[in-house]
Design a protein around this nucleic acid. Structure first.
Lengths: 151, 151
DNA sequence: CCCTTGCTTGGAGTGCGCTCCAAGGTTCTA
DNA sequence: TAGAACCTTGGAGCGCACTCCAAGCAAGGG
C-alpha cells in the first residue's frame, strides 16, 4: 500500500512563520532539498505541497512543460519545473482558471513570438487581481462594521 | 418556455461605473425598484444579479430566513431579505463556503444568545480575508515582475 | 376562452479542480 | 535477495456551487 498518495498536504504550504525574525532577506520560497537539478515526484510533492496526483494531472492537461524521464520512465523534475510550479501556484491563488494557465503554458511552448500575448494575459490577470483586492477590501469594511455591532 | 430562467446574469452585477462622477456619497449598493417592502423573485433577480434558481436553492439549503408567500404560494421577499442577500454576496466574495454561511444563518435564527458565536465567525472570516489580501498582493508583485520582463 | 408570462416543486445534471483506484513495474534498505 | 516504499497508467469518482428540467398552477390581456 502506498501511503504518500493519500496524505492530504502533510506540509500545508511552505508558509514561513510571519513572526520569525527575518534574518536573510528573501530565502527562496521553495526550500529545495539539494543542489542537484533533478527531483522525483515525491520530492516535488514535499517542496510544492501539491499531491502527486495533481502533478500528474497537470501534466496530462498540458499545464507542464515536457518533464524528463529516467530510463525506466519515472519523472525527473528540474529546477525550471519547480520555478514553473511556483508561478502556477501564484496564478492559482488569483483564482485564474486552470484552462487559462494551460493557455499561458501553450504560449510559452510556442516560443518568443508570443511575448506580446503573454504580457497581455498577465496584464489582464493583474487587473483582475487588483479588482479582487478592492472587492475584498470592501468586504472587510462590511465585516468591520458588523463586528462593531456585535461588540 | 420561460426565458428568464436561462438568462445568465443579464446585469452582471450592480457594479457602478468607477469613472462616473461620484455625486452622492454612497448610494445603496442595491438599487431597489420602489418603496414597497415586497418583491417577487424576478425583482430580486434584477436587484441581486443572482438567478431565480439560486435564490430558491439558497432557501432549500437553509441559507435564507423564512420568506413570506403570497396567497398563491409565490415568494414575496422583503427589504430585510435583500439586506441579507447583500451580506451573503459579500461573504461569498471572500470565498467562504456556503455551508459556513448556512451555519451563520442558523445562528441568526437561534436569536440573541448566539451573538458571541456570530462575532467569532465574523472575526475568523475577517482574518481569512486579510490573509487573502496579503496573498494577492504577493501575487501582484510576481505579476509586476513578470510583466516587467516582457517589456 | 386561450395564450403568454411568471411562478411552483423535487430531483437530476453540469463544470471545475482535483482525488482516488487497480494493477503492475522499480528502487532502496536490510 | 526479500520486502517495503515508491513509481507508472487510464479512467472513474467526488465535493462544491450552482444550473436546469418537467410538469403543473395562477393571473392578466385580447
Amino acid at each position: 500500500m502506498t501511503v504518500m498518495e493519500t496524505t492530504p498536504a502533510p506540509t500545508p504550504a511552505p508558509t514561513r512563520d510571519p513572526a520569525a525574525p527575518e534574518i536573510c532577506p528573501p530565502p527562496p520560497a521553495h526550500p529545495r532539498p539539494d543542489g542537484q537539478d533533478h527531483y522525483t515526484i515525491s520530492e516535488v510533492v514535499a517542496v510544492t505541497g501539491l499531491t502527486a496526483h495533481t502533478l500528474r494531472w497537470y501534466e496530462r492537461i498540458g499545464l507542464m512543460p515536457h518533464i524528463d524521464r529516467s530510463h525506466t520512465g519515472q519523472r525527473r523534475y528540474r529546477n525550471r519545473d519547480l520555478d514553473w510550479l511556483t508561478l502556477v501556484g501564484k496564478l492559482r491563488l488569483t483564482g485564474m482558471p486552470v484552462a487559462d494557465m494551460v493557455r499561458y503554458a501553450e504560449l510559452v511552448r510556442e516560443g518568443e513570438q508570443t511575448f506580446a500575448q503573454r504580457r497581455e494575459l498577465l496584464e489582464r490577470t493583474r487587473r483582475d487581481v487588483r479588482a479582487r483586492i478592492a472587492e475584498l477590501q470592501g468586504t472587510l469594511a462590511v465585516l468591520d462594521h458588523k463586528i462593531d455591532i456585535y461588540s
